[in-house]
Simulated assay, not measured.
Amino acid sequence: MDDGSTIETPPVAPLSQAELDQLTDQLIEKLKTVYDPEIPVDIYELGLIYKVDISDEKDVAVEMTLTAPGCPVAGEMPGWVQDAIMEIPGIRSATVELVFDPPWDPSRMSDEAKLQLNMF
């Protein structure tokens, strides 16, 4: 019999700092497996990742950009990033949004990326 009451799910415990640190390390490791096909440097070192949010439910939301809005893999790269993130055990979901504000420029690259591309 339906008495009109709703079933509430118990709140999810917040991620501990240790869990968050471990997930962050795993995310960086996975993001470093995705490359812009035109540049021999991963998207993390290129500075294409602008923001990563991890919810207590282990939903991951990423804001990223491309080296240029007309990048030939613009339609595919978010899927590559999402697939890489979903390889992490325990991640419930991953969404990847392309943003172009602020525009990417070479100053966002890590020293490692600049070294790989002989930009020093």
Rank of each mutant, 00 (worst) to 15 (best):
L20W: 01
M1T: 09
Q82H: 03
A18V: 13
D42Q: 00
R108E: 08
F100A: 10
D56G: 04
D105V: 03
V52I: 15
A94V: 03
K32Q: 15
V41G: 12
G79A: 05
D101P: 00
D36R: 08
W104T: 13
D101Q: 12
D21Y: 00
M64E: 07
T33A: 03
F120Q: 10
L31D: 01
M119Y: 00
P106E: 11
L20R: 15
P10L: 14
F120C: 00
W80K: 13
D111T: 08
T65E: 07
D3R: 09
A68Y: 12
I28R: 14
R92D: 01
G75P: 10
P40K: 08
V73Y: 10
R92F: 01
G47M: 10
G4W: 07
E38I: 11
W104D: 13
L23Y: 13
V41S: 07
V81I: 08
I43E: 11
M119P: 04
E97P: 03
L115Q: 14
I39H: 12
L66F: 03
Q26G: 01
Y44M: 05
E76H: 12
A74T: 14
M77D: 04
G79K: 04
L46D: 04
W104P: 13
K58P: 02
S110V: 01
P78F: 09
P72S: 12
R108A: 14
D111N: 15
R108Q: 15
I85V: 15
Y35M: 04
Y44Q: 05
V96D: 05
S107G: 04
F120L: 13
E76G: 09
E19M: 04
V73S: 07
P72R: 03
G47E: 12
